[in-house]
Amino acid sequence: MINKNKIFKLKKDRRSFLKLTTTSMATIGSAFAVWPFIDSMNPSADVLALGIKEFDLSNIEEGFSKTFKWRGKPIFIKHRTKQEINEARKVNLSKLKDPQKDEDRVIKPEWLIVVGVCSHLGCIPLGQKKSDTRGDFNGWFCPCHGSHYDTSGRVRKGPAPKNLKVPKYKFINENKIKIG
């Protein structure tokens, strides 16, 4: 009788071992199989190829800004005046919501390049045109929920949690940048 029970237990153990290994292999296999389906919804090669773009800065005068489209989003390119640069640099960092030095946000101080999408819920802040309202800090003002950005594109007031994003870019020459 004892002997019989032992065999029964062995068989049971063996069965649960097989069950466990089979199930785990099937799960891992399915996970691998599902990945291509999920990945197919990521940006395709032609969309990624549009991610690199060159922009000419030569016709933006001091004190003016221009908006370009990159990856379906607006890129704000602002040719800052001396005064605007000073304003951005003398701010006490401890007063900022998302503390960041202006020096870390630009390559050349006169050129501020940011993605013009409010970090709150994705609206496009006003302030690109001379006639636009620019908020309390002379930068940008988001009309959706009232976030104020300064001349360095940093959030100063309102519900937005982060500064305007600085895209990855570099100067190809004096008047040309490459984003992406």
Binding site: P36, F37, D39, S40, N42, S44, A45, D46, V47
Partner: peptide, 10 residues
């Protein structure tokens, strides 16, 4: 077939 990730496979 060419651009979509794993598009050829699907």
């Amino acid at each position: 077939m060419r651009d979509v990730n794993y598009g050829w496979l699907i």
